[in-house]
Amino acid sequence: MGKQTMAMILRDESALYYECGYSCDNAILLKLGSEAWFFTDGRYAVEAEEALQGSELVIADDILAAAAKRLKKSGVKRCGYDPKEWDCHRFGRLDPKGKITWKARPEWSHKRRMVKRPEEIELLARAAKAGAKAFDRIARAFSEEGFGKDEYALHFLAESILRKKGKRELSFVPIVAIGPNAAKPHAHPTKRKLKKGDLLLLDAGVKVERYCSDRTRTVRAVKGFDFGTIQGFKSRRMQKVYDTVLRAHDRAIDKARSGMKARQIDALAREVIEKAGFGKYFVHSTGHGVGLDIHEMPYISRRSGTKIADGMVFTIEPGIYLPGEFGIRIEDTVVMRNGRAEVL
């Protein structure tokens, strides 16, 4: 083995899937140059044999011991790992005698996955389209049978539509929030009931072949409402906040360019909200990458110096949250294509 060869050992399911086309909840992937070994137990033998690409399948009752044995047999001197994937117990068993030089490679897989391949973008676009159609169905269902129901019931109804009777997986647990509860960016359901004219926030996403979608809309819930971005609120204050968030959303998408740093795109949205006097109520980043995981690189935050490039996919989701009153967030997922942001 040449001096420049360094192995990489992975546990994260999305990282495994990206590297070899298969993953499960008890597996390790060891990569060494053009060679790779996928360690799992007998429960997954048939599926792994069918799906694995470019990796040798190793079935073992104790996959840590099997991986340690392979490391020793291969004569590995240096091995990379993502410290976010490992705990002290598991990591210690890989090299109990301390003969390997371990190189921490935080976010190794996320960095490899940051620029999406064309086939990945297609899957993300399909997921976004499926999510948008689900939003339309949820709007009809809420309009027809949602008034008078509490957030628990609305959450259950939204999730059943998103899952398409069990045929689809969700990107994350949906957020359904009414009025003051929407002032919590990651609101949990409450007993608050939906009344006509209420502010309603829905944040949800679905998966297509493991690739995620992510979308948020805030609306005035009246008979026949939809989740479009044109909304009219009776409260002038609420309308002002909504219009501010929409301007921030639209400005960031319209002016984002490949070659910018992520914090510059964050500033495009944040400046609108700050100039309107609501800066301290925008309490999170403008966006995050989306792919096999719902939160990936690049992070569109005030601190991120990541250079944005064509092929990156991320959300634009400014929000204003007024504690005890209401919260508004508008979110779309975009792909950088031909230098500009295109809504999926």
Rank of each mutant, 00 (worst) to 15 (best):
E120Q: 15
E120F: 09
E122S: 11
E122N: 07
L124F: 03
A125Y: 06
R126S: 10
A128R: 02
A128Y: 05
K129L: 13
K129G: 04
K129T: 14
A130Y: 10
A130P: 00
G131V: 11
K133E: 13
K133I: 13
A134G: 08
F135L: 13
F135E: 02
R137L: 14
I138V: 15
R140S: 07
R140M: 03
A141Q: 13
F142T: 10
F142L: 13
F142Q: 04
E144M: 07
G146C: 11
F147E: 06
F147M: 08
F147A: 09
F147I: 11
G148L: 04
G148I: 06
G148S: 07
K149G: 05
K149M: 14
D150Q: 06
E151R: 00
Y152K: 13
A153G: 01
L154S: 01
H155C: 05
H155A: 07
H155N: 03
A158T: 12
E159W: 06
S160I: 04
S160C: 01
I161E: 01
K164L: 13
K164M: 10
K165C: 09
K167S: 11
R168A: 12
E169N: 15
L170Y: 11
L170S: 12
L170I: 10
L170N: 12
S171M: 09
F172A: 14
F172P: 12
V173W: 12
P174A: 10
I175W: 02
I175G: 00
V176F: 12
V176G: 02
G179R: 12
N181A: 09
A183S: 15
A183C: 07
A183K: 05
K184G: 00
K184I: 14
H186T: 08
A187Y: 00
H188D: 13
T190M: 08
K191Y: 06
R192N: 02
K193Q: 13
L194Q: 04
L194D: 01
K196I: 05
K196N: 03
G197K: 03
L199I: 15
L199F: 02
L199Y: 01
L200S: 05
L200F: 11
L200H: 06
L201K: 01
D203A: 14
D203V: 15
A204T: 14
A204F: 08
G205E: 03
V206P: 03
V208L: 05
E209Y: 08
R210A: 07
R210L: 09
R210I: 00
R210M: 08
Y211N: 00
C212V: 08
C212P: 04
S213G: 08
S213V: 09
R215P: 01
R215N: 05
R217E: 11
V219C: 02
R220H: 04
R220C: 15
A221V: 14
A221S: 09
A221C: 10
K223H: 04
